[in-house]
Design a protein around this nucleic acid. Structure first.
Lengths: 166, 166
DNA sequence: ATAAATAATTTGGTATACAAACTATTTATA
DNA sequence: TATAAATAGTTTGTATACCAAATTATTTAT
């Protein structure tokens, strides 16, 4: 049997790897869609539910409304979404994807969640239970049982293009 | 027994929670040290090994040298580190922590790794094996077995200070 | 002696992020 | 009903992180 310290080291390495996969994915976005992480996140959210108010989006992404406006500006310039002022309450602005936005969403890289979900479906229920248990313990150790799970997406991570860094 | 789809959902939620705990930690940094994530990362690296060349630091953090210079500038202004041009090779600049920098490092929040390590030490070897197995499977699913584990730290994440967002 | 490579920096640009102030609009209240 | 308070979105100003390309100084290779 492996030594306890080795096991712990391995576990932490694996968590780092998972973390990296998540951020890695967000880098790939840049290459494949010319959007940054947060930008694609907006598009993905709008695909799920739309229209959405500016404030809804800000809340969902845990961002300041001012930051949201900037994000929306850039996406609007790219022609991926459309602002529409509400008739009922003229303070409200609804955000919708344009046809171009929907198109981009479809062709954008799989979000990590889906990748995982598909992989997990291939496992037996028994195995899933074990994995579930294990993760539960880690979550417990980190003391985040009660944290509402958010969408996975890092703020901004770019890939270094210069060879020297690879 | 729980349904397979429920298990999968739970697993993904847990991964999100872990991810969040990691980024959450990097947010806390801001409050407790007045440094950003990358800035503390530099300090932590220098605590581990110093002096380090600018290029070493850039490589370790997967950043462009120019980005590194900016980071170092800000930390130097804060009086946390000192640049010293090498005598041997006058192109090289060595970075050292100042006394103030070492002091800050000691009082800075535990890096997640340590938090986890301590928690895991409390578990039985048997349990650790199970957890190790489980994570291995996830890593495998994500196809990142061969990725070298990096230090955990996100690029830049700030905490929203306005109540409306909490 | 000169060309090529290397280390760090400067310059110029973009995106994310927040706070504070501002505009327009709606709701509450006196 | 007039006015105060709240709300939604925006603008403005500032900071950080990030990169690419050009620059300077220095070292190594030819």
């Amino acid at each position: 049997m492996r030594k306890k310290t080795d096991l712990i080291e391995g576990i932490i390495d694996d968590i780092r790897r998972i973390f990296q996969a998540l951020t890695e994915q967000s880098r790939r976005v840049g290459y494949e869609t010319n959007l940054t992480g947060p930008q694609l996140w907006v598009v993905k959210l709008l695909k799920e539910t739309s229209p959405m108010k500016v404030s809804d989006l800000a809340r969902r992404m845990y961002l300041h409304p001012a930051t949201m406006v900037g994000l929306l500006d850039r996406l609007e310039v790219k022609g991926l979404l459309k602002r529409t002022r509400s008739e009922d309450d003229r303070r409200v602005v609804y955000i919708n994807l344009t046809e171009q936005g929907r198109e981009l969403e479809v062709n954008s890289p799989e979000v990590v969640q889906n990748l995982l979900a598909k992989g997990l479906e291939g496992l037996a229920g028994q195995e899933l239970s074990v994995i579930s248990e294990s993760l539960g313990q880690i979550v417990h150790l980190l003391g985040v049982q009660d944290v509402p799970p958010q969408l996975i997406m890092t703020a901004k991570i770019k890939v270094p293009k210069t060879k020297e860094l690879l």
